[in-house]
């Protein structure tokens, strides 16, 4: 690069000299045609002909292979036979297609004339056409009288501008208005924490240190309407760590039970399930965009694109020793949205 810098001005000088038209190299024209083997030697041409025919023959065999694979391979509900059939169907189709394609191309390359030809380009727009077109447009406009009759013009513009609006309005019923649907989940006081997907309730004593339980609210599995929508907000990850490692902030001291904490599994970034729990570092990692939350700091974001901590679900145990929610989440779960305060 150093030498380039030195040559800066020099190059400019040379370049200027090179730019004058007289100083340019003359176009020598299309190079003379170089005959191919098949042009000179009839045997080579005959050989190429045979090769093309063989390629077409391979295509025929490919098609036959396809039929044999389709009707001949018995699918017995095992993956192995399906894989075999898929392979043979594909090979059959592939050979059928490639045989035709390579055959035609070989034919064109070896046997069809290969003289390059030059064709003049035409003007995309000729001046005569432009003048004629302008004249026609002027006449048309004049005949419609749109310039002389602004009332017609303006009302037409207004009508055309308004006419599509009903079409837009018709999309209103695509879905309901959000209302406050995003602000609450199906958790409420006393809802038992149960296993996902079995629905069995969880005792505090079940949750040993280092465990991670994937949890849904009791009653979710029994829902018939809106089950996935409810689940999409309510899924929770339950973990137990040494109570000394938790550092609850004011007002959250009693949200956990003897080191057992429950956090929303829905990432505050764009909503993937944050389900990767590292039981020694106490970090939660989102597999989609790598937001990392620190369980010992109330799931504060320590890396990645998320901004807010995961919402915590306050929990306690009921009279039978099962884990239950104290209330719903105290904030909306999942990604941020405009109306979220």
């Amino acid at each position: 690069m150093g030498d380039h810098g030195d040559g800066h001005s020099e190059q400019g000088a040379v370049a200027k000299a090179g730019q004058s038209v007289a100083e340019k190299f003359q176009d020598p024209g299309i190079p003379p045609h170089r005959p191919r083997l098949a042009d000179k030697d009839p045997r080579a041409a005959k050989r190429a002909e045979r090769q093309v025919a063989i390629l077409f023959g391979i295509s025929v065999l490919g098609t036959l292979l396809f039929f044999w694979a389709y009707f001949g391979v018995r699918l017995d509900q095992t993956v192995a036979t399906l894989r075999l059939q898929n392979l043979l169907l594909g090979l059959g189709t592939g050979f059928a297609m490639l045989g035709i394609g390579t055959g035609i191309v070989h034919w064109a390359k070896a046997l069809m004339p290969d003289h390059e030809v030059s064709e003049e380009r035409h003007e995309i727009r000729s001046e005569a056409d432009r003048v004629a077109a302008v004249k026609i447009v002027d006449e048309i406009l004049d005949e419609t009288g749109i310039k002389r009759r602004p009332l017609i013009r303006n009302t037409l513009i207004g009508a055309v501008a308004l006419a599509p609006l009903p079409a837009i309005a018709m999309f209103r019923d695509l879905g309901p208005l959000p209302a406050n649907a995003l602000s609450h989940t199906m958790w409420k006081e006393g809802t038992r924490l149960v296993h996902d997907p079995t629905g069995t309730p969880i005792k505090a004593s079940d949750v040993t240190i280092g465990s991670a339980f994937h949890v849904i609210p009791d009653g979710l599995n029994e829902m018939t309407e809106g089950k996935l929508e409810a689940k999409a907000k309510a899924v929770v990850l339950l973990m137990r760590l040494n109570p000394e490692l938790l550092h609850p902030s004011a007002g959250r001291e009693d949200w956990s039970h003897d080191g057992i904490v429950a956090y929303s599994k829905i990432c505050t970034h764009v909503g993937c399930p944050v389900a990767l729990y590292e039981q020694q570092t106490h970090h939660l990692l989102c597999p989609c965009h790598q937001s990392t939350f620190d369980l010992t700091q109330e799931c504060k974001v320590i890396f990645g694109p998320a901004n807010r901590p995961l919402p915590q679900l306050p929990i306690k145990i009921d009279s039978e020793g099962y884990l239950v929610a104290q209330s719903d989440f105290h904030e909306p779960v999942g990604p941020s949205f405009w109306e979220r305060s």
């Binding site: 969880i202 079940d206 240190i209 280092g210 465990s211 973990m239 039981q279 020694q280 570092t281």
Partner: peptide, 13 residues
């Protein structure tokens, strides 16, 4: 046993 950072999945889980 939950080796390294893998959580423990006890028989209640």
């Amino acid at each position: 046993t939950g080796p390294q950072n893998m959580p423990v999945f006890n028989d209640a889980n």
